[in-house]
């Protein structure tokens, strides 16, 4: 497949910058970067949420900081895409736009939501913040993230003839 890609922000700048968010956020605000709990906050404000114990807590008190943080992440995407020359790489594939493609994105999203909540963290909470705090379960979780994605990639390519863009 022919795709137009410009060079990304190099890894040796991007990685250290992302890593510095851990001490920076802790020092400035007392919180570690984390994203997937925001899904819990979003569910907890839906009607009927209080029927489920997991969603019974004070969202404004416990989750407002994270809602602001992920809103910021969204705006950061907007800033780069429309103000700083763009991401420079395709952000979706033509196959995503078919009905089956959209259904697959939704189904994959279900796995992302369920998996990150069951594991109690995602790439930011476990891999970046958790490992930075020398928490060994976060190392196990991170290995599992990569193993899950690698196996899915193998199955996609070997069984379903998936191509790497």
């Amino acid at each position: 497949m022919e795709i137009a890609i410009t060079d990304p922000l190099p890894w040796y700048l991007a990685g250290p910058l992302l890593g510095l968010f851990v001490p920076l956020m802790l020092l400035l605000t007392g919180k570690e970067p984390g994203v997937s709990s925001s899904f819990r906050h979003a569910c907890a404000v839906l009607p009927g949420a209080k029927l489920v114990t997991y969603f019974r807590y004070d969202v404004l008190k416990d989750g407002l900081w994270q809602i602001l943080f992920v809103t910021g992440i969204l705006l950061g995407g907007t800033l780069v895409q429309f103000g700083l020359g763009g991401a420079g790489v395709p952000l979706f594939l033509p196959e995503n736009l078919t009905a089956a493609g959209l259904a697959l994105l939704f189904a994959g999203g279900v796995l992302v939501g369920f998996g990150t909540r069951y594991a109690d963290g995602c790439t930011s909470g476990h891999t970046i913040a958790g490992i930075s705090n020398l928490s060994w379960p976060s190392v196990v979780a991170s290995v599992c993230f990569i193993v899950g994605g690698t196996v899915a990639s193998l199955v996609d390519r070997l069984v379903f003839g998936g191509l790497v863009p």
Partner: peptide
């Protein structure tokens, strides 16, 4: 940690997005 981690990994492949990038 293991079961959820593996499930999330599969979802990460299928969607090509972990939670932070979903918002971005």
């Amino acid at each position: 940690i293991v079961i959820g981690g593996l499930i999330f990994g599969i979802g990460w492949y299928l969607t090509a997005a972990c939670p932070g990038p979903i918002y971005a």
